[in-house]
């Protein structure tokens, strides 16, 4: 039995590569913004590029906020990517203040435009940067989909904002951009989220999809056994 993964369509940006990355590791996906279809899925991906406020607005319009809370509460593997990670937080300061999904307490803030030595920091951060496994996850890298990946692997980032979770024990991956050390990946129960785009991070990024696919398969087997 093959798990079916819903990719939530916020009607912005490229979902094709996420679909292709999933296909590459044997995950069957469908792109949808329909609440019923999302509830039927075995696992859910929340991608996102663009503005925080717009994306939350879109979730509201499609009545998906409750749906996302539900699938997460059911324990289904949930993967947030980039804006999809940021939206899990309580609120963002992007273009004013916006409420997020409030699933992981914390804030989303912008990179400063100047560093400690008055150096100009170019925002957005666009490009490859190294990702380090947080100490607290070093003993079980599979929980943060980091199995078979080296500490300090390069991943592809495009973002102006980053998350500060209230509770630091969800911080699974860390990255340094200019003067800022920030959380580039988080794990909480069945939630896994990355600030970078694994589907844009060449073979190492595909490895992350492969590792996540393993979690999805495990979860599906567990849910069948419990039925």
């Amino acid at each position: 039995m093959k798990p079916k993964v819903a990719i939530i369509d916020l009607n912005m940006g490229n979902l094709f590569s996420i679909k292709q990355a999933c296909a590459h590791v044997g995950l069957e996906t469908f792109i949808t913004s329909d609440a019923q279809e999302i509830k039927m899925a075995d696992a859910v991906i929340l991608p996102g590029v663009g503005a925080f406020g717009n994306a939350m607005e879109h979730l509201k319009e499609k009545d998906l906020i409750k749906t996302i809370h539900e699938v997460i509460a059911q324990g289904k593997p949930f993967f947030g990517i980039c804006l999809g990670m940021q939206m899990l937080m309580s609120e963002s300061e992007e273009f004013g203040r916006h409420k997020g999904l409030d699933i992981i307490p914390g804030r989303v803030i912008r990179f400063p435009s100047r560093g400690a030595k008055e150096n100009v920091i170019k925002v957005p951060q666009v490009g490859w940067n190294q990702v380090y496994l947080a100490d607290q996850f070093k003993l079980n890298p599979e929980r943060s989909c980091w199995s078979d990946l080296a500490n300090g692997e390069y991943m592809y980032f495009v973002h102006s904002y980053y998350v500060i979770p209230q509770n630091s024990n969800v911080v699974a991956l860390e990255t340094v951009y200019e003067d800022v050390k920030y959380c580039s990946g988080l794990v909480k129960n069945n939630i896994f989220a990355t600030q970078f785009h694994p589907e844009k991070s060449a073979d190492k990024g595909i490895k992350i999809y492969q590792n996540w696919a393993k979690l999805v398969e495990k979860s599906l087997i567990k849910s069948i056994l419990l039925r």
Partner: peptide, 8 residues
Amino acid sequence: ANRFGSST
């Protein structure tokens, strides 16, 4: 930029 995000 509003529609697709600045970074796009």
